[in-house]
Simulated scan of single mutants.
Amino acid sequence: MDLGLLASILAALLWGGYLVALKRFFSEYSAGVIIVVVHAVAIALYTPVALVRVPRGALGALVAGAPGLAVVVVSNALAFMAFIRAIETGEISYVAPISKIVPVFVLPIEIVLLGEHLTALQISGVALATLAVYVANFTGGSLLDPIRHALGSRAAGFALLSAALYAVGDVGRRITLQELALPPELLVLGLLGGMALVLSPHAARTWDGIGGDWPKFLAAGTLVAVSEHLTALAFSLVPASIASPVINTQAIVAVVLGGLFLHEAAFRTRLIAAMLAVVGVGLIAL
């Protein structure tokens, strides 16, 4: 299997578990506090890896990639805040299929900025991913009810906003890692540190300590460090329109775990929605 594809699959599995962990173990903390503490742990764990792997003379690549890195940091920070608001107001198995249709936004951005072209299969993928949003909102009754529900749902709105912002970040990763040749390890450290910096004022306003929850933050920081490394590796080896659809199949992981461990309602319907999203983004990647 291609290394970029393998990294994408492993990242999807780990990120899916992280989404459920956020809902299950960190619901009492703000997005700012989660990012600052978790990313501080991840930076402490990942820095030795970066020092060993980053080649000498990478400073020039860091300077060249700084604008792209800034875009990735800001878009991911805002996307994470939108996603936290989404799972605060809705169930993870409802939010995940909506928030992870990132490739629906990635492909148009790549068409405009990088000259990508839509094929018939990719258009079908966009349609299926859009249908997944509809199915995730369907609870019976009129066929128009899911559309009305999504339009009036704060959770759905925040989930869609997070998807669009993550798409900007994904294209930024691809440009920064491939066109600007920034080493993946520097992207990971820059992203972890930059997001923590951007959200530190929000964390300061909502800080109330973490008490005895430090083992949970330690575990989450380890998971994020590994997941970010795999994500950066994937985007450094394959186009964003390939890596993003695969990595965002984390939605189906989150839905399955949310249904099994959080006992959320409408599990079967939302599982179908997640599977449609997976097939849709798979077609987009072809």
Rank of each mutant, 00 (worst) to 15 (best):
D2V: 00
L3Y: 14
G4H: 07
A7W: 01
A7I: 00
A11N: 04
A12I: 06
W15L: 15
G16Y: 13
G17L: 12
L19T: 09
L19D: 15
L19V: 03
L22N: 12
L22S: 02
L22G: 10
L22V: 09
F25C: 06
F26S: 05
S27F: 04
A31D: 08
A31V: 04
A31M: 11
G32D: 11
I34E: 11
I34Q: 14
I34T: 06
I35A: 06
V36H: 05
V36G: 00
V37S: 03
V37L: 07
V38G: 01
V38Q: 14
L45Y: 12
L45K: 00
T47C: 07
L51R: 02
V52D: 05
V54T: 15
L59Q: 03
G60K: 01
G60N: 02
L62A: 15
A70F: 14
V71D: 09
V71L: 15
V72E: 05
V72D: 04
V73E: 04
S75M: 14
N76Y: 11
A77Q: 04
A79D: 08
E88A: 14
E91P: 08
Y94I: 10
V95P: 11
A96Q: 07
A96N: 06
P97M: 07
S99H: 11
S99G: 13
P103I: 05
V104Y: 01
I111N: 01
V112G: 02
G115A: 12
L118I: 12
Q122I: 01
G125L: 03
L128S: 02
A129P: 04
A129K: 00
L131T: 08
L131Y: 09
A132D: 04
F138E: 10
G141E: 12
S142I: 13
L143T: 02
I147V: 13
R148Q: 11
S153C: 04
G157D: 14
L160I: 07
L160Q: 04
L161D: 08
A164N: 06
A164S: 14
A167M: 13
A167P: 03
V168F: 11
V168I: 15
R173P: 03
T176D: 12
L177N: 03
Q178I: 15
P183V: 13
P183M: 10
P184I: 06
V188M: 10
G190V: 08
G193E: 07
G193N: 08
V198Y: 03
S200T: 11
A204Y: 11
A204E: 08
T206S: 13
W207V: 02
D208C: 01
G211F: 14
G211H: 12
G212C: 09
W214D: 13
K216C: 05
L218V: 12
L218G: 05
A219S: 03
G221K: 05
G221N: 12
T222I: 14
V224K: 01
A225I: 14
S227N: 15
A232T: 07
L233C: 00
L233T: 12
F235W: 10
V238A: 00
P239H: 03
A240S: 12
I247K: 00
N248V: 01
Q250E: 12
V256S: 01
V256K: 02
L257C: 07
L260Y: 10
A266T: 02
R268V: 12
I272R: 09
A273E: 09
A274T: 02
V281N: 00
G282I: 04
L283M: 15
L286F: 15
